[in-house]
């Protein structure tokens, strides 16, 4: 493209920051800076074992404990791998920049924004997604608490919130309301479900303890 006035302008509006450049430039989890959730939980990027790409590479992801083989270009994010290649669509693509948390999954026990992780870098780690949360037809206590406290309206942020709550409660089984307000600060909802989400996370904590002790 040539712009007579300003030839250096980006080719297309979203071309200013490439996903690859963004992720490699800031490190995985860098997109979470200032949003609270991942600041102290950022996962370090592993050094590449060998050079692959730019064409599709065969990779194996461990999703909810099961190996999944697929071929993706190295630039494909874990989120896009889940949604577009594997067909697991619980995690949503909302900002694609590590801001909103709609794509939250748990990788190797750490809560991550899957839009800010490359699929090839997610190999060898167990990736917990919302699809793996429920056993059969019964709701996981966190999902049940979201239903009971109306922690969802349109529901587009809800999978991310539920997984963020899971990651948070795994590390903070006895949270105060204040802990919840800080711990879930890395997820955004446009419909305004925060009142329900706050109560849901507290209630889920209580129910999960009950389940463990009982």
């Amino acid at each position: 493209m040539n712009s007579r006035k300003d030839p250096k302008l980006p080719v297309r509006p979203s071309g200013g920051v490439s996903r690859r450049g963004f992720v490699s430039g800031l490190g995985i989890g860098g997109g979470a800076l200032g949003t609270g959730l991942l600041e102290k939980e950022a996962v370090a990027a592993p050094a590449p074992a060998n050079l692959i790409g730019p064409g599709p590479a065969a990779i194996t992801l461990t999703i909810n404990g099961k190996p999944v083989n697929l071929k993706v270009e190295p630039r494909v994010t874990l989120l896009d791998a889940l949604r577009n290649y594997i067909g697991m669509t619980g995690a949503k693509n909302v900002c694609d920049r590590g801001v909103c948390g709609a794509c939250t999954v748990i990788m190797a026990g750490k809560t991550v924004y899957s839009c800010a992780v490359l699929a090839i870098d997610a190999q060898g780690k167990n990736i917990e997604t919302i699809e793996g949360l429920a056993a059969g037809n019964s709701l996981h206590p966190i999902s049940a608490a979201f239903v009971a406290n109306d922690g969802q309206q349109c529901g587009y942020c809800t999978s991310g919130f539920v997984m963020a709550a899971k990651g948070f409660l795994d590390e903070h089984p006895n949270p105060t309301m204040d802990d919840v307000k800080h711990g879930l600060g890395g997820n955004l909802c446009r419909c305004g479900t925060y009142m329900g989400v706050r109560k849901a996370v507290i209630e889920a904590a209580a129910n999960m303890k009950g389940a463990k002790n009982g």
Partner: peptide, 29 residues
């Protein structure tokens, strides 16, 4: 609520019918 809180609710942006093509949309800078 249960559909949403389990991630099972399918939105149009989640649909992946057989042979799906992905589109990208370009605007003026």
């Amino acid at each position: 609520g249960p559909q949403k809180s389990t991630g099972r609710a399918k939105y149009a942006s989640d649909l992946k019918p057989q042979g799906l093509l992905f589109a990208a949309y370009m605007g003026s800078p």
